[in-house]
Amino acid sequence: MSSRDLILSRIRASIGRGAPADGAVLAPHLAARTRGPAPGGAWRDSREGLLQRFTERATALASTVERVPSWAEVPAAAAAYLIARELPTRAVCWPSLADQAWAGAGLQVEARPSRGDDLVGITSTFCAVADTGTLMLLSGADTHAATSLLPETHIAVVPVERVVPLMEDGFALLRAEKGEAPRAVNFVSGPSRTADIEQTVTLGAHGPYRVHLILVG
């Protein structure tokens, strides 16, 4: 007997099932998509409430947040952020952001996957979760996973209409717009951190040291 069949038969014996059963019994639960308890509050009821919650939570997790009226202002905002912190103005970005006027703002931005020695990565996001101040990033040909991970600084552009209340809303959007999950769905909540030494929080463990969020709209 293969290990697979052995393990499954042991499980069946333990739960008192004589023979393999039909997976159809799972269908109602899979279809129901019942949601569990989640943080409530008035913030869930309006766009501005969501943005306020998102900003508060992201800030609490050591991201910085600013808001610009439109995409046209994004390159200048990114440049101002980098220059104010004396960070490099050379960056990589998702191919989906290749058309932005980065050079006009004084940035040297290449639209390609990050190789590990890039210091700044610029991405957008599939959506953002207001509840926890979290980006929901999907991997793909134009949205490389490593861009938000390998560089020391991560700048993410978040269209305000893509801010949803809860993680479940992000998953609902994923099902509605993409049908199924891509290879990697990454929820990112601020710069990478560790507290392994004396439980002291230190930013920039293996991923970015800083995350800057630019809300658009």
Binding site: R183, A184, N186, S189
Partner: peptide, 13 residues
């Protein structure tokens, strides 16, 4: 929430 929640599904398309 932890900084990263990473969900991996299959291989790259």
């Amino acid at each position: 929430i932890t900084n990263y929640v990473s969900m991996n599904t299959g291989v790259a398309g």
